[in-house]
């Protein structure tokens, strides 16, 4: 589903962040990427989504066989890539529901479909709000405007649910979230996961991985994957830290 080979990227000033990262994710798989701060985890998510701060200097990334870097950010999303951001930005004055609807309609337009009907949209929205135990007032507010950290993360999962992506990369969805909210978010992710989808969890903590069980765990250090293993690797990291893997 997602095939990354020898990916390299740098900032405008030439600083190289990713230095040859490779990762294969098949349909139905859940992968966790862990690693020390500054190892390039968030950069990976943003480069794949097409953030303008980064320049790809080598390697490739394919989504369902297509080179992601041939497409604009919005096209990548409409082809099924979703990134749940670590720090979702606030956009004042834009009603959350209007934004989600525009995103849904943008994808439908991209796929040559009609705009979503009022009733269908409302049903889908209500279903997902329920799943995430979010009150209706969430979608009446400005997009992430004045949201707490936990509310912003839940809103990311709501968008993921509404957009039904093929590959979801969730960047520290568990940070700044209390235990109850983490359980709700995790249940949401598990509900959304199907054998046709893939999920990549970027995290520092085992507590998320207890709730959303990864098939594979990777350790990223200095822009490269330095160790891969099964879910037991995360437990090992929990006790031993990263020092034994990072020189």
């Amino acid at each position: 589903m997602l095939n990354i080979e020898d990916l390299q990227c740098s900032l405008e000033d030439g600083t190289q962040i990713l230095k040859g990262l490779s990762l294969q994710v098949k349909p139905g798989e859940t992968h966790a990427i862990m690693g020390p701060n500054g190892s390039g985890k968030s950069t990976l998510a943003r480069v794949l989504a097409g953030h303008p701060a980064f320049t790809v200097t080598g390697g490739k990334a394919e989504l369902a066989g297509e080179n992601l870097f041939d497409f604009e950010t919005s096209e990548r999303a409409n082809k099924g890539l979703f990134v749940g951001f670590q720090h979702p930005i606030e956009i004042p004055g834009v009603k959350n529901a209007d934004f989600i609807r525009l995103a849904v309609d943008s994808k439908r337009a991209f796929l040559g479909q009609e705009k979503i009907e009022d009733e269908e949209f409302q049903e889908l929205l209500d279903k997902n709000l329920n799943m995430l135990q979010m009150g209706k007032s969430y979608v009446e507010r400005g997009l992430n405007e004045g949201f707490s950290g936990g509310e912003k993360k839940r809103n990311e999962i709501l968008q993921m649910a509404m957009l039904d992506p093929k590959v979801a990369i969730l960047d520290e969805t568990d940070s700044g979230v209390d235990i109850d909210a983490l359980r709700i978010i995790s249940e949401g992710i598990n509900t959304l996961m199907t054998p046709h989808k893939s999920i990549i969890l970027i995290t520092h903590y085992q507590r998320l991985l207890d709730l959303v069980k990864p098939d594979f765990v990777h350790v990223l250090s200095q822009g490269k994957i330095v160790k891969s293993g099964g879910s037991e690797l995360a437990l090992e990291l929990e006790t031993k830290g990263y020092d034994w893997l990072v020189k």
Binding site: A49, G50, T73
Partner: peptide
């Protein structure tokens, strides 16, 4: 952020400005 949700650049600009 808006573009990463599938909204093209022109719609993204007008969304931000309308807000």
């Amino acid at each position: 952020y808006l573009q990463s949700r599938g909204i093209d650049e022109e719609d993204a600009i007008s969304t931000v400005v309308n807000g």
